[in-house]
Nucleic acid binder design. Sequence first.
DNA 1: ATGAAAGCGCTAACAG
DNA 2: CTGTTAGCGCTTTCAT
Lengths: 355, 355
Amino acid sequence: MAKNRVTIKEIAKVAKVTPATVSMALQDNPRISTDTRKKIQLIAKDLSYHPNYLARALVSKISYTIGVTIPNITDSFYAELLQGLEDGASEFGFNTIQCSTRNILSKEKLDIDLLRSKGVDGFVIASAENEDLNIKRLIDDGFPLVMVNRRLTGKPYCEMADYVVPDNLLGAHIAMEHLYRQGHRRIGVITGLANTSTGKERTQGVKRFLKKNGIKIEPKLFVNGGWNKEIAYNATKKLLKLSDKPTAIFAISDEMAIAAREAILDIGLSIPSDIALIGFDNIIPAQYKGIDLSSVGIKTYEMGKIAIKILIETVERKTSPMTNKVTMKPELYIRQTCGFQGYETKHLQMIGNKT
Amino acid sequence: MAKNRVTIKEIAKVAKVTPATVSMALQDNPRISTDTRKKIQLIAKDLSYHPNYLARALVSKISYTIGVTIPNITDSFYAELLQGLEDGASEFGFNTIQCSTRNILSKEKLDIDLLRSKGVDGFVIASAENEDLNIKRLIDDGFPLVMVNRRLTGKPYCEMADYVVPDNLLGAHIAMEHLYRQGHRRIGVITGLANTSTGKERTQGVKRFLKKNGIKIEPKLFVNGGWNKEIAYNATKKLLKLSDKPTAIFAISDEMAIAAREAILDIGLSIPSDIALIGFDNIIPAQYKGIDLSSVGIKTYEMGKIAIKILIETVERKTSPMTNKVTMKPELYIRQTCGFQGYETKHLQMIGNKT
DNA sequence: ATGAAAGCGCTAACAG
DNA sequence: CTGTTAGCGCTTTCAT
């Protein structure tokens, strides 16, 4: 009812031409004479014609819509990423339709199926697990997709699709190095889920750093924060109850770092005098005065824009020339939680972009 | 290419029936015998058939997709609202496709047109301005829509469409009363844009409170924060430069309150000893230790769920029985920024829902 | 109980 | 240059 809008048929009737002519005229197809083209376009405007993209998509096989799967939007990191995706898509005349998977593979499967049924042209996947069957199926089907932030890790699939991800090994290295340079040798780590590339690689980066610097890897200093505030909060408390507790903590995401911060303060310790703290992602709340969380992170919004650009390019030329693999270089954002007093470093950069 | 999925035609061929029969069988239409229905459904599964919703929508006029316009997702308040919308939609088998308008009406117009062309069944609009022509047009066209958080204010349109909004007058009252009870009489206000219902009504609520309590309304104590961190930051500084500066500040959104917080601290004043601070919305970062922002707010996530529920109900029964107007009751969340020492109040509620 | 036919709104061949 | 025809994948009459 509310949907009865004018169609090319009616325009055709008014212009005394056929629907096909109208269709072409509206697309400025040079096959139609400039006169009739102008005439038809005028009539279309007069009748306030709006194309039906559904019908168009049915025949042209392109809907100008991209499916996005993301763990959840209320996490600042993903909100920023999503904004990059949306803005990027918009620049190319595309829209995104996103689903929150909550890190549940069965939900992701449902979401992906639904989005495919709705005719999306491709996927940006921010919810990848290391051995994500849903994504593998998409790859097998030759469906355009790019993973962002997280990616598949198992061979051979990990090299079969495009992705844009942070350099997690380097990021972890930078964070650890920063703590190390402040003199910390006993460093607790709040890890994420190991079945995600970010969780796996960041932890791996930590271990490499320790090895390289001749520090013994103590399993009890690694506690699982599960990419989740509650879990990270409790994990931190566990860490702080250790008789030989760490002098510093590296939480491999800022969301978890903020939870760790709560735990540390709740226990009555001070940051950074009693315990130093650094996170990963450089989310906006990390920059708030009163939080002032030191962090290492990549340009999240940009990462989103790059990912969607790659996807749309492959969608539009409909040919995958070669896989696009982008690694974003992380930077150190020094604030108040590490007791930084000053030193020289190539990674150094004071305070991030303020929104 | 990647889109060639099995269609009902192929199922029909295999099942030796006509496409129409397949269509009905797949919808469990009792017109088809149980036997053939079962048989067809089995074949469909075997062939891993997935319906093409585009085609379906073209004929059935329902796409199970809702358009959402929102100022921007990186604002915690809207992220939470959006999550409610998405979750709510998902419960009914709908998806949302959202656009960030950035509070720009021309962008909103483009977005709405595009979404209509993409065949959305209705709109949830979180970007309404008081006299929003785009929305008025939607109403005139009889297009299903519900406004959320903000709404139209001018007559007669303000009563012509559904909405779910906070009780802004009450909310402002609660915030002011809280400050008042701590003894504050000179209260600075960081206002939002007056062309939004939230901005207008919250400021109005403040003024009513002052009047009721015999406090003179001093224009210089009202500074425009423009729903924007930068602007709010500068506005706060302006307020604090006053020779007879306020002893407390009410920022009518938490995002602005957090910016105000930065300004206050940057200037070297303490919270709450030098100056008290209260916000509006009760966003998640307000709950972080170190921020501990006192705030008044409604259940944002719930508001989103209610809004989408109303919309989907009107979409599905395709008849607007009566307009649905919902007002959410705000509650006070007392934290550390108002120097609260204790008193009794009917609005009182300690600490909010922790995520 | 099922088949046949028409059509949603649009585009893309092929004619003329 | 423009019209005709066919069809995207599905649903929904109307016949049989």
